[in-house]
């Protein structure tokens, strides 16, 4: 059997990267403040785990994420639905919503710090804001986007309103809404890491920022990797949930 080039290349290239990295540090081409070896990063990883530092920061970050994301996403869902279903709500709040949506969440950080201080409330609010908009927009767009013909079919068969909602509106909108929720989860994680870097008092971001200030490159790299792995795991986890919720789609 001929060797599988795809497997070789896709496993080989990251491996090669690691080997080059290790080799470069072994030959001391760069001072240790600039580049530490993969083994040193692994050692630092062990260090922050045995001291419990990583677990402490990570659990703080994740608790914040859970609080902010749940608040923001559920408020966003309710607001998006109200915006789509009521003409009055749309007229009154639509323009404000569209305008606020244009401002990058990060730009609100200095204002919120001044108004709310740097306590837990601030971080929850900023994450909630990051989570709010994608969900609200997805809910609004997907309800607005339900084809008119669906309503015509349901009125043709004289379907009562609860059937309309449970059999038509929810199945027709849930895929897009879930996609919006997934996007908002990714955004929340991004904004959380940024907020913790700016207001460094605890959490994964603070661990990285402290590492930077103490020139501990190994700890910074551990932070980068953990931030990536957590982001990836959250997205994957949600993807699984999404697939489970939408299994009727492919079945």
């Amino acid at each position: 059997m001929k060797p599988d080039l795809k497997l070789i290349l896709s496993v080989g290239s990251p491996l090669l990267l690691l080997i080059v990295w290790q080799a470069v540090t072994a030959f001391k081409l760069f001072p240790p403040e600039v580049l530490v070896s993969p083994t040193a990063v692994i050692a630092a990883f062990g260090e922050v785990i045995t001291t419990g530092e990583l677990q402490r920061h990570l659990s703080e970050s994740l608790t914040r994420l859970a609080g902010g994301f749940t608040t923001g996403a559920s408020l966003g869902l309710l607001f998006g639905l109200a915006l789509a279903l009521s003409k009055t709500v749309e007229r009154v709040f639509g323009p404000t919503f569209q305008a606020l949506r244009q401002v990058p969440v990060l730009a609100f950080i200095p204002m919120l710090i001044l108004l709310l201080g740097i306590d837990e409330v601030f971080k929850i609010v900023i994450i909630a804001k990051a989570a709010f908009f994608p969900v609200a927009l997805a809910a609004y767009d997907s309800v607005k986007g339900v084809p008119k013909s669906y309503f015509e079919v349901s009125s043709l068969y004289r379907a009562p309103w609860w059937v309309l909602i449970s059999k038509i509106l929810i199945p027709a909108t849930i895929p897009n809404i879930l996609a919006g929720v997934r996007l908002s989860l990714t955004r929340s994680w991004l904004v959380l890491v940024a907020a913790e870097l700016i207001v460094a008092d605890s959490g994964l971001g603070q661990m990285m920022e402290m590492g930077r200030q103490m020139f501990r490159l190994d700890i910074v790299m551990v932070g980068v990797i953990v931030a990536g792995v957590i982001g990836f795991a959250l997205d994957r986890l949600f993807q699984l949930l999404q697939a489970h919720a939408l299994r009727w789609k492919t079945a």
Partner: peptide
């Protein structure tokens, strides 16, 4: 295709890191 196979695992793993999370490292 060979470039795709070699580059996509690296691309996909780097992309997982929240963009501003790179800042402490790049700063160093």
């Amino acid at each position: 295709k060979p470039i795709e196979w070699a580059a996509s695992p690296i691309y996909n793993s780097f992309r997982q890191v929240p963009i501003l999370g790179w800042l402490p490292l790049i700063g160093l």
